[in-house]
Structures are given as C-alpha cells and as structure tokens.
Design a protein around this nucleic acid. Sequence first.
DNA 1: ATAATTAGTGATCAGGCGATAAACAATCAT
DNA 2: ATGATTGTTTATCGCCTGATCACTAATTAT
Lengths: 228, 228
Amino acid sequence: MARKAKLKSAAGKQKRLSPDDRRREFVAKATEFFAEQGFGGGTRDLARRLGVTQPLLYRYFPSKDDLIREVYRTVYLEPLDTGWEKLLTDRSRPIRERLREFYNAYTNVIFSRKWLRIYLYSGLKGLDINRRYVAVVQDQILMPIIRECRHEAGLPAQNKPTAAELEMAWVFHSGIFYYGVRKHIYGSSVLEDKQQMIADALDAYLAGFERVFGTGVAPRRAPVKAVG
Amino acid sequence: MARKAKLKSAAGKQKRLSPDDRRREFVAKATEFFAEQGFGGGTRDLARRLGVTQPLLYRYFPSKDDLIREVYRTVYLEPLDTGWEKLLTDRSRPIRERLREFYNAYTNVIFSRKWLRIYLYSGLKGLDINRRYVAVVQDQILMPIIRECRHEAGLPAQNKPTAAELEMAWVFHSGIFYYGVRKHIYGSSVLEDKQQMIADALDAYLAGFERVFGTGVAPRRAPVKAVG
DNA sequence: ATAATTAGTGATCAGGCGATAAACAATCAT
DNA sequence: ATGATTGTTTATCGCCTGATCACTAATTAT
C-alpha cells in the first residue's frame, strides 16, 4: 500500500513527510534510541524523542518487536554489501596495503556508538541475525584474508583454512573490533590514530602468521606445553 | 546485626541457612539469573528461581538495584586478587612461558557465560565498576606485559609505555577476550584447543612487538600511508 | 513453656508498560 | 466546496513491575 513516492509540494514547506520517509525517519531515530537505552526502552520515551505521541508508532509498526526487527535489519544490512571481498583479493597490490585499506574502510562503517551497541545488544539476545553476521565476517572477510596470507607465505592454496588459521584471524579481527568497543562504548582513551593501530595490529598478525604457519626454517610453531 | 556465625544444629537437617549464607546464596543465584535475562529480568521470576516468594528478596536487599550492585561486586572482585602481576614479572622464566601460563589462568577465570555476560551488560550500562576493571587490566596486566616485552627486546626500561605499545597490547588482549565471547555468548564454534589459541596469539603479539617496536635492522615500523 | 525475635508469605499499591479504539485534524480526489 | 482518505491525538485497557504492609510460621532466648 502507498508504494509510489508522491512528489507533492516539492518546494513548499512540508509539514508532513511522505509515509515511507516518515517510516524511515522513525526507524532511524528508533535505532539511536534503542542503541542508548537498550531494547527495554519504552515506547513512550521513544515517541517523545520523535516528537509524536506513542500510539502513532502503532500505525507504522504492528508492534514494538516489529520495529526492533526493522532496526536490526537496517543496522546490519546497511554496511554489508560493499564488495569488500574484491578489495581483499586484488593481488595486484601488496597484501599489507589491501588489508590496511580494508580495515580502515570496515572500521569506518562499524565504529560508531550506535552500530556497536546494537551489535552487542543483539549478541546478548542470541539473535539469529547476529549469528548470520558472524558467519558473513568469517566467510567473506577472514577466509579470504587467510587465503591471501597463505599465498603470500608461499603455502599451497587450500579452500578451507585450518581451525588454527581461522582462530588466529579471529583473534586479530576481534582485537581491532574491540578497539571500537573500548573507544565508543567504554569511553576509554585509546590510541588516537586509528590507522596506526590497524597498521601495527596488521604487522603483528602478518608476522605471527608467518612465524606460526609459515615455511621459514626459523622457529615455526613452538611446542605448546601444558602449563598451570 | 546478626554478625556472629551461629553453629547451631551442625549435624541436624538444616531447614534454614544462616542469614549470611542465605544472602550469599541469593546473590549467587541472582547472578546466574541476571546473566541470562539481563538486569531487566523481573524480581518475581528471580524469586521463583530461588524457590521463595518475591517480597522475601526485600528482606535481604533494600531494592533491586542494591541486589544488582552486589552481583556486580562479587562477579568483578572475585577473580581479581590473584597476584597475577608477580607471575608476569618473574624474569627467571622465559617470557613466552609466563604469558602462556598467565593467559591460561586468566581465561580460566573469565571465560564463563556468567562472567562474560555480566561484564558485557555492565559495559553497556557504562557503569563505573566496568571502567575501574578496564583500568585494572591496563595497569596490572598490560603495562607489566609491555615492560617485560621491552626488557626482552633489549629496549630501555620506561615506566610509561607509549600509546602505540599500549594499544597493541590491548588489541592482543581483546582478541583473546573475544574468543571467550564468541564461544560462550555467540555460541560460535571456536578452535577447541584454548591453549593453542593463546599460544598462537602470543607468538603473533611477540613477533609483532619485535617487528614494530624492536631494535632489529630488519623492517621496523612500516610507514603508514593514508589509504582510502 | 513462654516470650521475643527472626524468616517467610499473601494481599495489595502506585506506576509504567505495550497495545487498542474512538475522536479529531489534515490532506487528497473529484 | 465536498466527501473520502490518511495522519495524529486523547483516553483507556489489561498486565506486569518494584515495593510495602500486615500477618503467619519458625527459631531463639529466658
């Protein structure tokens, strides 16, 4: 219903937005609201923030849960289809440069109080959408990275990375991710220069990959003695 | 009031626990409850879980908030006074071994669904206790680690690590931390062998520290070009 | 045994919650 | 201009929440 965008009163002072735009506006502000308050935040407070009365929300969304679902949808899907895999696998450029550029771009998208809080809340709820996002990160980011690292290290190409390779990529990725959490959620004072943080973390990861999985004669994987 | 432990009916079937023990039992079960439900969980549900009626909670705790505070207190303080700093700075043992042992012990404490969820919830609330915990991690764990790494790399000892050193330690630490989050909260399938994950992450960190901050003639800190 | 004290319960209150229905206001089609 | 349609508000419902009070049951002290 009401699908076509009505170009009415394009120049006049618009008191009313088009229904779709209004809806989008509600979702956007609801996202900010729930990011701060958590999804336990009340519909009355949300409506006050929107400058409308509470029952109006129920003309645009059948229930609070539906509104919340829409918030998830937009927050999660917005930043996802950006063709990052291509950037990562462009072997005409050095791997360090590709990875730096990727993580700078990626963190530009997810390092916001809003995004990170919604993400953490949904994770604590155990939502499917969160699991799916984690799977996307693993398949479209970490696995390509590992493939490139194997290539770089002169290791034979394999479709499936080993569990240990995957884990090390996760630790690296999570370390960068948590920089955002510390900055935007905990309010910690972090290294101001995000690019340097990424570059250093990357150097450690690449050095670690080489040392742990690489072909060099130098100390490969050190034996893991049971300690403690 | 009622401070002295009453050794009554030591052998008999005890229907009632001592007040202090009962209180502790309440806090313990409330911790599990809030860890799952979040702190929005209702006092009635909690009471049902405890096998008592809801008003009884208010005999032991003035308000729900007080109970929650006590939950935080026990969860945060329990694992903290374990003299980890000494373990980290014992230079009679190789640094790899010390760090492995430390992180195995540390993760044994914090890698539980209960602890991690309470931690994340309190972080989202922006609670002071969370900030204090972060400060403790930085002062009593990361800074000693950096000091040891500087020593190991033959760098001059400094009281204060640089911001970049600190950041790299945080990224490494957070990466390990997030292994627990992925396993116990997201329910992801992680590398089963926690010790190997720690050992590999450690190798990467140590290699990265050497490469980025070390004294070697080999490529030190690569220049960070602005990308993207 | 009896009185005093403590532990626990049932009933209930005021307030906030999500959601609904009916009335009013603004816009659109004709 | 008029009627239909859509957007918004006022008033309200039933339910659940944290918290309180008066009361009963169990324990302790004398």
